[in-house]
Write a protein that binds this DNA or RNA. Structure first.
Length: 707
DNA sequence: CCGTACAATGTTTTT
DNA sequence: CATTGTACGG
């Protein structure tokens, strides 16, 4: 029997969090304040106190995170914690809706639409309403989906969203409104739900049925929510109702780490929590155990430059430490080379690759680096970016499966039919109408189809479904997938004739992945709710020897010994799209804060001086404003160790200090600046924050070298 | 009505 | 540059 000795490792505030078991509790926890550890201990403590693990619900940002935390709780307690329910809001809602969806007219086998499915559906409706033809500047499908999602998640009207973010489409107000109504109706009619519907529908059931609230309250007696700053009002409401009976709801968050505003999250949600639950106790965790003082100083400066005031100041127990290093590379190639060089150095010093991460704002920022790493044979995994499910061939394949689970999924039907030779949009529509109008079972309907349309590939499809429906419960999940693969394969070869052997591997790993599942339905649900990364399927074996490349969003909650942040230039970080609006810019800043606070010991900030833009060629890149705001005393400027020839060359030139591109300098009138270009030994171009790029003659200009 | 060849367009972050 | 829409021939 384990004891409670694990509590001794916690500081007093953390202990208070663990022991405050009953009633609503809001924990404001700074970066690296042991938030995860505290949550784990709290779960273990509850189970130790005799709470049935099945009565505990843990909501996190990814299911992987939930699983990891539950595993660690089990390790602490050496007692079965596996039965704790853990997952994301979306997976919880999905699960509850399989039970209670009937209250809204949903069967338990409804299909979940991912973003591109939703886009396909919108497109389908758009053309059936005739909006795609004449109207020249009608919004595109992805814009329409974004508009719709914003209405839901930000609790705003179509008019508000249009006038604030898409004023160019205000003329189409009624058409858009009509389209969105059609979209909503269609989903309901054919058993489809998009991501937002999962939240909306579950909330709607909770609101309408006190009986459900009671049942759910009895099912989960203790609710814990991680990363609460990234929830939106829908999720807040869901929590309110699910905790109504017992009020045992604990949420943890950090308002300065809110980075999902684009998805409707609002960091102010965290301050609304006490309004949802009266008598909320609030505990702050401000002591940082993760990073060195030098890194934390940087983080504190970043966040103090915010327009919004946040609730905490971090202080650390790890005094001192190396100053974060800034490297201004000549171009992206040099930036990648720099990162790879440092990584190899670190590895020689005994730092494991898995303890190093390279972070960036957008997935494509690491393309150049990926090439360099491949060249040098440094293994890595990448998080964020393309998901396996997003590639066309996987979507095709999955569409076959969706039909099997939910024969009313005409969106999947449409996709599959269009794949067949000789069938275009019109014929597909005819077939689908035929399917819709027949009351008979799928099997007989399919038989009937044979007489309507003559197509060799359609025959094969019909044979497949006849066979599968007949054997549906006899075959294992992977056997079913294999059958589908057999039918799809010739089509697959025809459509992707250029690179089908490359794509084939994806399908194969998908099939082997499906072996773990007891039903196709479960497999599909997991695929949509926890989309797999492309690389994840390839290199699972050697994961602990891998360097991590990740978007900052996907790096949330994680930490490494050494962190590199690359592409720290205007337009990339902050991103162009966020530079117009104050609020979005603030979110970018928080994003930078999150990135910096991932590092325990070492932090490298890298920015290329020039980048290559398609169409425009090489262009100058300005250092990110977030770096420019940082006092120079907090950073070290990285200089390549001078080679002997270089030294020999510079010494003879003049007796003024030798400047290099990228050196930081100080001028009595213009202040601090950075050297952009050396034209001759005496003439240099310097970028001053106050003045812009200036040509200086070193004979006259009393430049002082900094750092 | 289907498939293909070509032109245009606009590029984030994720459940 | 890769996706998405348009024009045209079969």
């Amino acid at each position: 029997m384990a004891d409670l000795s694990f509590l001794e490792e916690l500081n007093p505030s953390q202990q208070k969090v663990v022991k405050t078991v009953e009633g609503p509790l809001l924990v404001i926890a700074g970066a690296g304040s042991g938030k995860t550890k505290t949550l784990i201990c709290r779960m273990a403590y509850l189970v130790y106190q005799g709470v049935n693990p099945e009565k505990i619900l843990l909501l996190t940002f990814t299911r992987k995170a939930a699983k990891e935390m539950i595993d660690r709780a089990e390790e602490l307690l050496k007692k079965n914690c596996q039965k704790i329910s853990g997952g994301t809001f979306h997976s919880l809602c999905q699960y509850m809706l399989r039970f209670y969806g009937y209250l809204l007219g949903y069967n338990s086998n409804f299909t979940i639409l991912d973003r591109s499915d939703a886009e396909d559906l919108i497109n389908l409706l758009k053309s059936s309403l005739g909006f795609s033809d004449k109207k020249k500047r009608f919004p595109k499908k992805d814009t329409l989906v974004s508009i719709y999602s914003k209405i839901i998640n930000q609790k705003k009207s179509l008019e508000e969203i249009l006038s604030s973010e898409y004023p160019q489409f205000l003329d189409y107000y009624y058409e858009i409104e009509k389209l969105l109504t059609e979209y909503t109706n269609y989903k309901k009619e054919y058993q489809l739900m998009d991501y937002d519907d999962l939240l909306v529908n579950w909330l709607s059931i909770l609101r309408q049925y006190p009986q459900v609230r009671r049942e759910v309250g009895e099912r989960y007696n203790f609710i814990m929510v991680d990363e609460y700053q990234d929830t939106n009002y829908l999720q807040g409401e869901i929590i309110k109702y699910m905790g109504e009976i017992h009020q045992n709801v604990m949420v943890v968050g950090d308002d300065s780490q809110s980075i999902y505003g684009f998805r409707g999250a609002n960091f102010r949600n965290i301050f609304e929590f006490p309004k949802l639950f009266s008598n909320t106790k609030i505990i702050k965790l401000e002591q940082n155990y993760r990073s060195t003082q030098a890194i934390l100083d940087l983080a504190n400066v970043i966040i103090s430059n915010s327009k919004v005031k946040y609730t905490k100041n971090l202080y650390t127990v790890k005094k001192g430490g190396e100053r974060p290093i800034l490297f201004r590379a000549k171009d992206e190639a040099e930036s990648s080379k720099f990162v790879a060089d440092r990584i190899l150095e670190l590895r020689e010093k005994g730092i494991k690759l898995s303890q190093i991460a390279v972070l960036f704002r957008s997935a494509f920022h690491s393309f150049d680096l990926e090439m360099e790493l491949n060249k040098r044979g440094i293994p890595f995994v990448k998080y964020g970016g393309l998901k396996l499910l997003e590639s066309a061939h996987i979507k095709d394949f999955v569409a076959f499966l969706k039909i099997l689970v939910n024969p009313k999924d005409y969106l999947a039907w449409n996709r599959v039919l269009l794949l067949l030779e000789g069938i275009g949009p019109k014929t597909a529509e005819r077939v689908i109408n035929c399917l819709k109008n027949s009351e008979a079972s799928l099997k007989t309907t399919i038989e009937k189809l044979k007489y309507h349309i003559h197509s060799k590939e359609l025959d094969r499809l019909i044979n497949l479904y006849t066979e599968l429906l007949f054997n549906f419960h006899k075959l294992s999940t992977s056997e079913t997938l294999l059958k589908v693969w057999e039918t799809y394969y010739p089509i697959f070869q025809r459509i992707y004739y250029e690179d089908y052997n490359k794509r084939e591997k994806d399908i194969e790993s998908l099939i082997s992945l499906s072996e773990k599942y007891s039903s196709v339905e479960e497999f599909l649900t997991d695929l949509v709710l926890e989309p797999l990364e492309v690389e994840e399927t390839l290199s699972t074996a050697k994961e602990d020897e891998c360097l991590v490349l990740s978007t900052i969003h996907s790096a949330k909650g994680l930490e490494w010994h050494t962190v590199f942040i690359i592409s720290l230039i205007e337009g990339r970080f902050p991103s162009y799209y966020s530079m117009q609006k104050e609020e979005e810019l603030e979110e970018e800043r928080r994003l930078f804060y999150v990135a910096v606070t991932r590092a325990r010991e070492k932090l490298f900030l890298v920015a290329p001086m020039t980048i290559y833009l398609p169409g425009e060629g090489k262009v100058l890149a300005k250092l990110s404003r977030f770096i420019q705001e940082i006092p120079l005393s907090l950073l070290n400027y990285y200089k390549e160790p001078l080679k002997t020839q270089d030294l020999a060359g510079t010494k003879t030139v003049n007796e003024v200090p030798s400047f290099k591109i990228g050196d930081l300098v100080k001028h009595p009138y213009f202040g601090e600046g950075e050297i952009m270009e050396i034209i001759s030994p005496e003439k240099i171009k310097v970028y001053f924050e106050k003045k812009g790029i200036t040509l200086l003659n070193l004979k006259y200009a009393p430049l002082e070298k900094l750092v």
